[in-house]
Design a protein around this nucleic acid. Structure first.
Lengths: 121, 121
DNA sequence: ATAATAGTTGAGTAGATGTTCAATCGTTCA
DNA sequence: TGAACGATTGAACATCTACTCAACTATTAT
């Protein structure tokens, strides 16, 4: 014991392969990138949101349409659309009482389809 | 009121664009596919798991190494590795007391990098 | 055998998440 | 004006999730 804070103190174990750890640390993406990455995938981690995005890939739709399509309440859909709006993945336009939603990001479809390929094999 | 269950009864609103809903319904993926899709992305929706996967992309590592790399306890890492194992995304091999983990899926890297591209722009 | 160490596990806990419910807003139309 | 309807909102609630902690297993070394 040195009395100073060591690598061991910060963790409940010793480093077994210090060089590997050092090298991997250099090659890994920025911490912030990985946080953003997790947040992006978090959007796709709920089946309701996946369904909404899948639907909007084929056509602009109003809240009510989506609710009927998925057999859920307008409220539930509206809450999720809010999340998708905040993630800048969907946009909306108002026409009288009706609010139409559509995708606002080209990558969205790509990411979803990439996942579909993986899931289906 | 007909006395029978109608589309309106199952939802708190009327269908505004029945044709759109019908067409989109045909084009959308199977319900099960979308559930699996959400489950897949759920794995990537936590920054600790993203970091573990990012690390393993560069080198096989033992639990202890990953714990030191991420500044977390072995226990926390072990719990997450269990989740990744169950999703068939990582595999492990034992050598004495040490358990080495590595990626067990080619798609993993692709999906992660696809997301990184999106996040970085 | 005993101690030490790498890793796993299960219970417990605090915080996040998705839906429901009721109230409300905004627009249209009678 | 006020009734009707699409949509939004916030609180409440139940569930899920990620980490901690302590106990445990398995393997190695003395």
């Amino acid at each position: 014991m040195t009395g100073y804070i060591t690598e061991t103190d910060r963790c409940d174990c010793d480093t077994i392969h210090e060089e590997v750890v050092a090298q991997v640390r250099e090659k890994m993406p920025e911490d912030e990138d990985m946080l953003n990455l997790a947040d992006l995938f978090k959007v796709f981690s709920d089946s309701t949101r996946v369904k909404i995005i899948s639907a909007l890939q084929h056509s602009e739709m109003c809240v009510c349409d989506i609710a009927v399509l998925l057999g859920m309440t307008k409220s539930a859909i509206s809450h999720q659309l809010r999340a998708l709006r905040q993630s800048k993945l969907v946009k909306n336009r108002k026409e009288g009482k009706v609010v139409y939603y559509s995708l606002d990001d080209d990558h969205v479809g790509t990411i979803l389809e990439q996942g579909l390929i993986h899931v289906r094999e």
